[in-house]
């Protein structure tokens, strides 16, 4: 699914956590800029911009001071974000340094599953899964020990307002299940 930047795509993320009584959601635009910076603009239900680069993460939120997280001090975050960027660039060989990579395909649908090799990262991140159809990624799943996050990519997310994990999994797997 390697793309020539810049590319942008709408997203809707659902976050499940043991501290949440219902999934938290956010939607907006994801953009992979030509300078290699990943921009994540949340538009609803609040406004926020996250810039992810090789240097670190910058979080800009309306009415709050900007927060910076240099990747040097957060090695696990670095692995996760580097993995994500490698995926966007289609550099699977780089990914294999930090993850076991599995590719399942059925017809035009596919799923890439990344399992972290680093034990510290694995304590926080069980697996990273990207589903897609053809050259279009449709879904990003982050499985964590106490929760999960599902990011639906593309213009028309076909889910209820407050979906369950099962419904989201089903939605994400649909392209793979379809003939």
């Amino acid at each position: 699914m390697s793309r020539e930047p810049p590319v942008s795509i709408p997203f809707r993320e659902y976050r499940f956590s043991r501290v949440l009584k219902r999934p938290a959601s956010a939607s907006g635009m994801l953009e992979y800029r030509a300078d290699g910076v990943l921009v994540r603009d949340v538009e609803l239900p609040y406004r926020e911009r996250t810039l992810v680069s090789g240097e670190g993460v910058i979080l800009q939120r309306e009415g709050r001071a900007e927060r910076r997280f240099p990747l040097e001090r957060a090695p696990q975050l670095r692995v996760l974000l580097e993995g994500f960027r490698a995926l966007l660039d289609g550099r699977l060989s780089t990914l294999r340094n930090d993850f076991t990579v599995r590719l399942d395909e059925a017809g035009r649908g596919w799923t890439i599953t990344l399992t972290p090799l680093d034990a510290t990262l694995a304590r926080r991140l069980t697996a990273l899964r990207i589903d897609g159809t053809g050259d279009q990624p449709t879904c990003l799943e982050i499985a964590m020990p106490d929760g999960a996050s599902y990011t639906l990519l593309g213009p028309t997310p076909r889910v209820r307002d407050v979906p369950t994990r099962a419904e989201l999994e089903a939605t994400c797997r649909t392209p793979l299940a379809a003939p």
Binding site: A26, R40, V42, L59, R124, L125, I142
Partner: peptide, 20 residues
């Protein structure tokens, strides 16, 4: 309110452990 938003950000998986 900030933490709720942090959860749906790329930092979410890293603060979740400490949140409670």
């Amino acid at each position: 309110e900030d933490r709720r938003h942090d959860l749906t950000s790329p930092l979410g998986s890293f603060i979740e452990e400490w949140l409670p």
